[in-house]
Write a protein that binds this DNA or RNA. Sequence first.
DNA 1: GACCTGCTGCGGCCTG
Length: 819
Amino acid sequence: MPRVPRDPAPRARAWMAARGWTPFDFQREVWAAQAAGQSGLLHATTGAGKTYAVWLGLLERLAGATPPPRAPALTALWITPMRALAADSAAALAAPLPDLAPGWTLGLRTGDTASAERARQDRRLPTALVTTPESLSLLLSRPEAATALGGVRAVVVDEWHELLGTKRGVQVQLALARLRRWRPDLQVWGMSATLGNLDEARAVLCGGGPSVGVQGRVDKTLVIDTLIPEEPGRYSWAGHLGARMQAPVVEELARSDTALVFTNTRSQAELWYQMLLDARPDWAGQVALHHGSLDKSVREWVEQGLKGGQLKAVVATSSLDLGVDFLPVQRVLQIGSAKGVARLLQRAGRSGHAPGRPSRLTLVPTNTLELVEAAAVRAAALAGRVESRHSPEQPLDVLVQHLVTVALGGGFDAEALYDEVRGAWAYRHLSRAAFDWALAFCERGGDSLTAYPDYHRIARAEDGRWTVPDTPQGRATARRHRLGVGTIVSDAALQVQYLNGARIGTIEEGFIGRLRRGDCFVFAGRLLEFVRVQDMTAWVKKATKAKGAVPTWQGGQMPLSTELADAVLAQMAEAADGRFHSPELTAAGPMLRTQAERSALPRPGVLLIEHQRSREGHHLCLYPFAGRQVHLGLASLLAWRLSRAQANTFSLSVNDYGLELLGAEPVPLEPLLDGSAFAEDDLLDHVLASLNAGELAQRRFREIARIAGLVFGGYPGAPKSLKQLQASSSLFYDVFRQYDPGNLLLDQARREVLSHELDLARLRAVLGRLRGWRREAVALSAPSPLSLPLMVERLRERLTTEQLAARLERLLREAEAGR
DNA sequence: GACCTGCTGCGGCCTG
């Protein structure tokens, strides 16, 4: 441990004192580490003074007390995951410059930066630059990158927990490795919210090099409570809207000045916005809606209203999880499950956003089981059991993109770049063969695309360096590459626009594709009638009909985290032992007792298997409490294994707590009871056979093809439609499979399906757990409270895929023929 | 006892 000076940053301390601030202990701790030249990660709750902890110490170290003869070159970089955050940070970071870093200039560079400012920066970058991962990559792709960025001595990454587990984070890792190559003494500091694996997060950020972790302990009271429904004994067993909580929520909002109301989906936000206005028409103009499909101008208006304290309540999705600090927000309400402890803490932190003010979050359960979950998530949050996030391992699509970026940014020597890339945590084990494959892929497009010059993106110059050649073809490559930088791949979206011109927002092509002229839908809090699609725009008019279908967006999966699922199971065990200590569990008491009477309460160590015969067929419900993603894999696996033993056709249904198999024929229980159905033998083969893994991999490949630069998304303002993108990526998928089966991007697609979509590691762990558990079968005479939501889920949407049905039929015929 | 989940994030060409 290097010697720490007693007063590591006297000028920073003086600057704070002039404003009446006394540095917190953790701020001095960061300054001391920075003074010693160390890198590190600062973990603290929001609103605790992280920004100045990290920034002032760096300025003290990097800037002289007297103005330098002329403005120095780019010295410090500040990376944020969001443009709005970048703009906000730039203002805060500029404040101490005149005193602590005289002569320094500060600039902002994101996609929002005006072209005049961009041009000015291109001539000369400021001393400190606030930017995003994508804009940083674009800077690295400029020919003079080494001179322009080679002098960077410090990088700060804000909200690192947000980037860590994503390909965007890998993009940052690669950029840092590059900067580190130019300046081996580069100081890197990250800031993170609560995370289960802070040490790993720090190692990933600092490339495994020496670094320190600092805990920003600030007194912050966290209050989590639950809105208990009236007559909890009659609260609904299923459903996720929570319409019966309308009145209590309105009451809570009436009592507070400004509140955020979080929902899990955009359609849920739309519906709750309506419900609030239906109950209180006088709140029109004071209640607003905020989610990712709304037009930017609408969202900005809402954000301004929140900042200014003019709004009473905003109903939002995760679109307001991060970003600008909304000081006036007093209360946060969470409708439905928070799905994870980290998300809950993040959202709670949106209220009382200043040191010393308490954060308060109120859970609003939408069904009785969510009462149990509310008790569970509070217990887990207060015990600090927070989810971990892990860096992706060796995503080759990101590497391919980076190789082209670096080739454009002055070119590279293969040997040196291989070493550099392995300095990024995600590629620390990258083999030379994989690196050379990626290199060759950029050079010739792999074995199958050699005939197409569009995919000959880089070439080896006479001096051995790899560059993008300065030819018409090369210039076209450069242009397309810069347009496609980044790892965020979203589906094609259509503009929603009134016939008279006003733009309302965007909506997925898939949803609009299901509408016919005259169909109505609710969007942006308005009832709209669909007219036609033209030029990637859905034209609409005000609807006159009373009712509309609410749009559903195809979004990501949000399975319950392992931490939370375990916490729910622990609550069930409490109830089984007759301990109803929390108001939530007490309120869920009647339902839990019904469950105990009709069936049994699940508890750790016991797998509950309910079976029932109905007009629909033979039901089998299992409750592993492993999250819906794993349940989906498990349900498919069980259906496949059971129907192999004895021909049958199953409908599947899953939720976060359990799964249902509905068989056309009676289902033998023995394989479940003796545990053989949970065997790990040939797991991979069986999973791949049971799910349509090929289809999944092909879908996954769409993202990979985009990131690796195989598929071009079109020029700004004229995006290609989803169909075109799908067509071209599936073409590549097929071509590679046929003519280039060794293509490592195919391999990556398969790996991503197994790890992201099926979560094979968790599935394997769950199978192991279930084999170790005692298995208890109960015959039901009426649906149990736990099984009912599964049946409802199945009625809503049949999970049986055509493919599965067809395959099962084929299996059946084969079994028939074999006999 | 029965209805309706599935998020977020960024970037930017050429031509006259």
